[in-house]
Nucleic acid binder design. Structure first.
Length: 805
DNA sequence: TGTCCAAA
């Protein structure tokens, strides 16, 4: 990074507005002394990750301006550097400041007189120079040296890290973790970086290790390899555990791939055992878990049991009262709930927990609406938060894993909904304000898009759910799995211990939709025979990867001639790169929908990187802006462009309208949006479009998967145009094991909750919804879920252990 | 090879 070219603000802190000591996230107000950009304010708020800063010191903050929706203009700092005074006057002022206790102006002057303008670095190099200063006591000399070391320490560490080959950003992250001990720790065991610092992998640490002479089967090297491999495989593949023998072997390969030494398997097993003793991994039978994931699975199971064990909801109101209220609601909303939807609402209101699942268009949203309305009716409480006094708890808690899903919940229910992170009070370093000791408040908790929740978040969520609440989990198990490890919704359904209602009928499409038939067929692993035959609502165009741009161009051109606009048509693709990738298709599509022709030479456009934005462009928001009600995944349209000379702030501005909500972007914010004529299937999750154009070709080879195809197809409301090779569709349908995730959640739930059944004896369980035998439970388990060869005997053994403990 | 959350 070239600091000379970066925007900086030099100044000293006036007040610390916020500081998270755990990860050093800091919000400061500073007094501006100097900057290399046009900026006239005397003060500015800077945010970033800083070491401890002192009001007496001057710092140079490198970064860029940003507009915070609530707190206004602020400077987002990438790295900070201390300003070491260079002039005689500056050094005298510095040394005589309050920072150096007992040092006055006279002493400071004599130091600078004797040691010159680089007095500070000379003292740091050789503290005995201070002995030469007349009338300076040993005590004061010591104070000066120690204060200097303390305050210049960061500089030294940064330089040290630089010499080890770390750039500014990574160096700061390392410093955040180790603080003053940074260099000592890295010198003695560079492999600790793998564990402690995000963004440093095994190979990086191993290079460092080699330089420092740590090689071969050194325990630190092996341990780091184990932890890295376990973490990387779980995070990348979504596993909650790895098979031990395979795992140990892959670690061996990794260790041997860079050094010509054979590492015995036993050595790896020894270190793995040590890691277990240190509490970093958990090994059970032939499975190896990261400790955090192991305890997440376990904790989630305990908390689900705790919530399911609540019996108080079963008879909270008579059925007649429910039916009466339901009838009134149907009249009021002018709809009629289908039997399965009624069942869902009733179960939700009379059980501690419900899973509501079903594909797109099956009416999950309508059911959620029904649940909250009827809850309010039957419990005689208001749905308006304003009707509640300060100390009264609003009973309805609605949350979802993404900002956009939460926004949709708000739109469909009229109730406040937040992201799960916000609900739990995420504080930036993987911990939450709300937990078992400080649970969230509410009476009924509804969680949407549960398929996107990973095992770790699910655990943190459930442990913060208090007793005496009802929990409703909503989601579609066939959609893309969570980013993080686990497949919580799928596993909970497989265990079949939580009351579940599956919505199957489609209400959204007209009857006879062949798109839904196609989706069903793909969900079940088959391509229909009529895939390539034109249907009323879908068609198929055969072509290869290289033909995709031309085919998409023609199809879209045709649609535009028929009167469709860019709002109606969405092209979906699985990946960004390549000739049929999203980037390439967006360029072509922009040309069709919003191209530049001779007649509008004066058309306004703003160039940003490779992209030229024009008024009328369809764009996609990439980050959440909750205060502005715009979220990651929202699609909008560029409505106007203003050039720097026309605006008050003298910056280029681009205005985007998201269904009426207008947002202004300056150049710095433009990385928050991208062209959206074509977007990734992942990003499209949770949206629907009248017309979907879906290429599926060999060029997407690595991404061809059944749930991806299913997700893409189910985005189409009216028309679906498939293009590509039938073979690629077939490959996608067949690819299910790539998504296979090793988890033991289902198994744990069954162990914990299915009581031991005496031979041929009926199980007595008071709650009917929970009445289920092992055999039934195991039958219900999808073989894909990863139960392995579990027999009822396995459960008994574990149950006995639990009883003993 | 693609995807999430965010502090006054």
């Amino acid at each position: 990074m070239n600091e000379a070219l970066e925007t900086y603000i030099k100044g000293h802190p006036i007040v610390t507005i916020f500081r998270n000591e755990e990860n050093l996230y800091t919000v400061l107000r500073i007094k501006v002394e100097e900057t290399n950009i046009e900026f006239k304010e005397k003060e500015i708020v800077v945010i970033g990750y800083f070491p401890h800063v002192y009001e007496e010191e001057t710092y140079i903050f490198y970064g860029k301006f940003q507009e915070h929706p609530k707190y206004g203009r602020q400077f987002n700092v990438t790295h900070v550097r201390k300003d070491i005074p260079k002039t005689k006057q500056g050094i005298i002022q510095y040394l005589s400041s309050d920072l150096f206790k007992g040092i006055g102006k006279k002493t400071a002057e004599s130091i600078v007189d004797l040691l010159g303008e680089n007095a500070i670095s000379r003292i740091l190099e050789n503290p005995s120079l201070l002995d030469t200063i007349p009338k300076l006591s040993a005590d004061k000399a010591k104070t000066i040296y120690e204060t200097l070391v303390e305050h210049q320490g960061l500089e030294k560490i940064m330089i040290g890290l630089n010499e080890l080959g770390f750039g500014a950003a990574l160096a700061m992250r390392i410093f955040q973790v180790y603080k003053d001990e940074t260099l000592e720790i890295i010198q003695s065991n560079p492999y600790r970086l793998v564990e402690d610092v995000e963004g440093i992998g095994f190979s990086r640490a191993d290079e460092l290790g080699s330089k420092l002479g740590i090689q071969g089967n050194h325990p630190d090297r092996i341990k780091a390899a184990c932890l890295y491999k376990l973490d990387a495989d779980c995070m990348q593949e979504g596993h909650c555990y790895l098979e031990k023998s395979e795992f140990v072997f892959s670690v061996k390969q990794m260790l041997e791939s860079t050094q010509p030494i054979e590492i015995p398997l036993e050595d790896i097993e020894v270190e793995l055992l040590k890691l277990e003793e240190e509490g970093k991994v958990v090994s059970k039978e032939d499975r190896v878990y990261l400790a955090s994931i192991f305890y997440s699975e376990k904790g989630l199971v305990n908390n689900i049991k705790r919530i399911l064990d609540q019996k108080e909801f079963a008879e909270s109101f008579p059925e007649s009262e429910f039916l009466l209220a339901l009838g009134e609601l149907e009249d009021r909303l002018g709809i009629e709930y289908a039997p399965s939807q009624r069942e869902a609402i009733q179960t939700a209101l009379s059980s501690p927990m419900l899973i509501l699942t079903g594909g797109p268009g099956t009416g999950k949203t309508t059911v959620i609406k029904g649940i909250v309305e009827l809850y309010a009716e039957l419990h005689g409480c208001s749905l308006d938060p304003k009707d509640y006094k300060k100390d009264e708890v609003f009973p309805f808690v609605l949350a979802a894993p993404t900002g956009r899903a939460a926004k949709r919940m708000t739109e469909s229910t009229g109730l406040p909904a937040v992201t799960i992170h916000r609900l739990l009070g995420w504080n930036g370093s993987n911990t939450f304000d709300f937990n078992e000791e400080n649970p969230i408040e509410g009476k009924i908790i509804i969680l949407d898009e549960m398929s996107m929740v990973d095992i770790w978040l699910a655990h943190n969520l459930f442990k913060a759910i208090p007793d005496h609440v009802q929990v409703i989990l909503v989601g579609d198990e066939d959609q893309l799995p969570s980013v993080g490890p686990g497949q919580v919704l799928k596993d909970l359904l497989a265990a079949d211990l939580i009351p579940t209602v599956r919505l199957k009928e489609i209400y959204r499409q007209e009857s006879g939709s062949t798109i839904i038939q196609l989706a069903h067929s793909i969900k079940n692993g088959k391509l229909p025979e009529d895939l390539k035959k034109p249907q009323r609502d879908r068609s198929f165009i055969s072509c290869s990867t290289s033909q995709i741009p031309e085919v998409v161009k023609q199809v879209v051109g045709h649609a535009v001639n028929k009167g469709y606009t860019s709002k109606d048509i969405q092209v979906l693709a699985p990946m960004y790169r390549g000739p049929a990738g999203i980037d390439q298709l967006n360029k072509i599509l922009q040309g069709i929908f919003n191209g530049k022709n001779d007649s509008d030479k004066k058309r306004r456009e703003l160039k940003f990187g490779d992209v030229v934005y024009r008024v009328g462009d369809k764009v996609l928001q990439l980050v959440n802006q909750p205060e502005k009600n715009v979220f990651n995944g929202d699609i909008g349209e560029v409505v106007s462009i203003f050039f720097a000379k026309e605006t008050e702030d003298k910056t280029d501005q681009l205005i985007v309208s998201f269904e009426g909500t207008e947002i202004t972007y300056t150049r710095q914010d433009l990385s928050q949006i991208t062209l959206a004529y074509c977007c990734s299937i992942h990003k499209s999750q949770g949206s629907e479009f009248p017309v979907v154009i879906l290429p599926m070709v060999r060029g997407y080879y690595r991404m061809l998967r059944r749930n991806l195809l299913y997700t893409a197809i189910t985005r189409a409301k009216d028309k679906l145009i498939l293009c590509g090779e039938e073979e690629s569709f077939q490959i996608a349908v067949n690819q299910t094991d790539v998504n296979f995730r090793n988890t033991t959640l289902t198994e744990r739930l069954l162990k914990k909750m299915v009581p031991i059944k005496e031979q041929n004896q009926e199980v007595e369980i008071t709650n009917d919804a929970l009445a289920i035998s092992y055999e039934e439970a195991l039958m219900n388990t999808d073989p894909m879920i990863g139960m392995g060869d579990i027999t009822p005997y396995d459960f008994m053994e574990e149950q006995e252990k639990v009883n003993e403990g």
